[in-house]
Amino acid sequence: MSINVGSIMKDGLWDRNVVFAQLLAMCPAMAVTTSGTNGLGMGLATTAVLVASNSLVSMIRHTVSSQVRIPVFVVLIATLVTIVDMAMNAWMHDLYKVLGLFIALIVVNCAILGRAESFAAKSGILASAVDGLAMGLGFTGALMVIGLIREFLGSGTLFANASNLLGSSFAFLEVQIPDYGGALLMILPPGGFAVLGFLLAGKRVLEKQLGKRAEQAAGCSVATHAT
């Protein structure tokens, strides 16, 4: 059975973005986005769990009875998160020390269980994997954007300590603005909520503008056919 990859990706990246549309996972979105690197690392870890959990849930959807599906899904997600937690501790220890408890808290990220229940439990493996990837990339992008804005305004840096996540060859991403002390407020929780609020407002305005353009284009098309 064919799947509409474009529609699934658009849902995850924009229409049903975990942070900007569904307002889920606010705890990591506010806590770990003090830098773009932290947001990217948390997002990629969550993406890995989303893709794996969606795929596995889809595989077992006809085997697990409806009465016990939620506990089974939670155990499955917890197992995957434990694997990711141990892998980051082993190979990305510096970033692991920064993210700390929030990696383990991926288990209680409503978006992961929500996608398993609402999509993967009703869809094929390929579609479920694509959905997990789309939702994960949308979540990663949201965390990274929030983190970069807060980092730039709060510390005067961009992708600080990126080499801890991506390796020494990516050290060129690390940018330091000279003679800028930064605004402490942006690193603190109120700064995170302020940045999120402005981004949500910007997304809403952009969607309205795109909707008006689509309506105008449709009207012009109808008028052209009428003549």
Rank of each mutant, 00 (worst) to 15 (best):
G197A: 09
V75Y: 13
F193Y: 06
L44E: 12
A162E: 09
Q176L: 13
N161H: 10
G167Q: 06
S53W: 05
A162Y: 09
V130W: 02
A78Y: 09
L76V: 09
H93I: 12
L133E: 02
V64H: 02
L184E: 07
H225C: 04
G39V: 13
T82S: 11
N4V: 05
T34H: 12
L99S: 11
I3Y: 07
N4I: 04
G197C: 05
S163G: 14
I177G: 10
E117V: 12
G147V: 14
N54P: 01
G43F: 15
T47A: 14
V145I: 15
A45R: 14
W91S: 12
N38D: 10
C110F: 08
N38T: 05
G192P: 04
A120D: 00
T33Q: 08
A21G: 03
L143C: 10
L158C: 13
S65H: 07
G197N: 03
G132R: 04
M135E: 05
A45V: 15
L99D: 06
G156R: 06
G141D: 05
L206P: 00
Q176M: 09
A142G: 11
D15N: 10
F73Y: 08
D94S: 13
V49K: 09
M42C: 15
F172Y: 14
V51M: 14
P189R: 04
I83M: 15
S123G: 01
G154A: 06
V49E: 05
L200E: 00
A134V: 03
S128I: 00
G124C: 03
G36K: 15
M1A: 11
S168L: 10
G154F: 11
L200F: 06
L148Y: 14
F172S: 10
H93D: 07
G138C: 12
L95V: 14
R16D: 03
L158H: 12
F73E: 03
E207D: 01
L184N: 05
M186I: 15
A116F: 02
F152S: 13
F139A: 03
H225Q: 05
T33H: 12
S7C: 07
G136A: 14
A116Y: 01
L206H: 00
A48I: 12
S7M: 04
A183N: 09
V49C: 14
L56R: 01
G211E: 00
S168Q: 05
A120C: 01
V74F: 13
S155V: 11
M88E: 01
D179H: 15
M86Q: 10
L126Q: 02
A127T: 01
